[in-house]
Nucleic acid binder design. Structure first.
Lengths: 115, 115
DNA sequence: TGATTACTTAGGCCTTGGCCTAAGTAATCA
DNA sequence: TGATTACTTAGGCCAAGGCCTAAGTAATCA
């Protein structure tokens, strides 16, 4: 799913679909790309569940799906909050140190000065 | 950045780094992979700003960065809420319809019955 | 029913990504 | 100072991803 989101064209399509459902040809107009190539992008989105489509007559219409976005959002939020709570603990620790200058200096050193 | 998140190994490393900073060799132990290959993964994470590293002596230590996660989270949330507010509008519309059975039936039809 | 339209499928080509081994280099250790 | 340790760099191989043209197929239209 992150792989599907890693491409600008696919993200663009998703954005478009938050506004309204659209047919293949409507979506394709915005991109300078052969139709079969564009369809492959749509397939990727559909395979990972980010969109659904149905065919009516000879027109296939796409719709966005929200749940996968929520899942991804949740994962990101989890990592972020874990890290943040660790930082809180560190703040706590630093407060307890107060007067020990050498240790705080080491902790505050610039990260990655050279490679 | 989504590309960097698209790989299980890289996500695994990120998770690990939410708990504590770690050196290359510490991180690498968990994966059955040649060191140079593993380093390439770390490079990808660093290039897109998901982690930072600094070298002390001959040991390079990695640290997670939160801001990019927030950005991604924000984008996902934006798309989701746009879509959801559109759904709210649709609910509104459906409520106003109330008695028109044929239209609601069409709207409720299963998506993508065939391909 | 013969044309159009709106995709779909098939096949090929080229770039990128990911993995590995071998051979450095720089920092410690004995 | 010679050996280890902890990465780093270089080079090569293979699979996956992304793009295209050409050739269908199925639904409408004239």
């Amino acid at each position: 799913m992150f792989h599907a989101l890693a491409d600008p064209t696919r993200r663009n399509v998703l954005q478009r679909l938050t506004g309204e459902n659209a047919a293949v040809s409507e979506l394709a107009q915005a991109f300078d790309m052969a139709l079969p190539s564009f369809l492959q992008r749509l397939d990727v989105l559909e395979e990972c569940g980010l969109v659904r489509s149905r065919k009516a007559g000879r027109v296939r219409t796409y719709q966005i799906t929200t749940r996968p976005l929520q899942v991804a959002e949740g994962w990101l939020a989890l990592q972020r909050t874990r890290w943040e709570s660790r930082l809180d603990q560190l703040d706590q620790y630093l407060l307890e140190l107060k007067s020990d200058a050498s240790k705080t200096a080491a902790l505050e050193a610039d990260y990655r000065p050279s490679r």
